[in-house]
């Protein structure tokens, strides 16, 4: 099958590539751009490990073709920290609150939480749980992921983080 030229902005950089139309976005990111942060966990758009931010939306890059997102603006976990290496509040929160164990779901989870906090600066616990329900984690039981996102929300808003009473 003839290959198509695609170009897009990924983590603030213009990138180009030659892809078969059937090349999944996740494979384009991982194999052509060497951005191996997003992972493949389920293949059927259930687990969210492949989540990236695309034109202001959280999307599952395993269920999308690279040709479909020609011209798009994409952010992956690799583009979350500041240029000087300072971790994003979410990255910091996940570590502080023990919101990860094996780390495999973490890139998708953080990128999803990033968009959630863009849309809702001070989400309730239930809103967080609902907001990350497209991302599966097998290790943490989510409780500390919720805390990590609350930590980041507080930090971004400049208010002190108070752990909810157990």
């Amino acid at each position: 099958m003839a290959k198509s030229q695609v170009s897009m902005t990924v983590n603030d950089k213009k990138v180009e590539g030659l892809v078969e139309p059937r090349m999944l976005l996740i494979h384009f990111l991982r194999e052509q751009l060497h951005l191996t942060g997003p992972h493949i966990g389920c293949d059927t758009s259930h687990c969210g490990a492949c989540t990236v931010d695309l034109d202001g939306k959280s999307v599952k890059s395993c269920t999308m073709f690279a040709v479909q997102v020609n011209g798009a603006d994409i952010r992956t976990i690799e583009g979350m920290a500041a240029a000087d290496g300072t971790l994003h509040a979410l990255q910091e929160g996940f570590r502080e609150m023990h919101g990860l164990q094996c780390g495999f779901c973490t890139p998708g989870m953080i990128v999803r939480a990033y968009r959630l906090l863009q849309e809702n600066k001070d989400p309730t616990e239930d809103e967080i749980r609902f907001g990350i329900s497209g991302n599966l984690c097998r290790c943490t039981g989510y409780q500390n992921i919720v805390k990590a996102i609350q930590y980041a929300a507080a930090k971004i808003s400049g208010v002190p983080f108070q752990e909810a009473a157990e």
């Binding site: 992972h39 690799e78 996940f94």
Partner: peptide, 21 residues
Amino acid sequence: RKRVEDIRFVQGKGNYVDDIK
């Protein structure tokens, strides 16, 4: 103690098998 492995995982810099090329 905060986990040392998290530094790479939260930045998408873990090295899993399918990352190997």
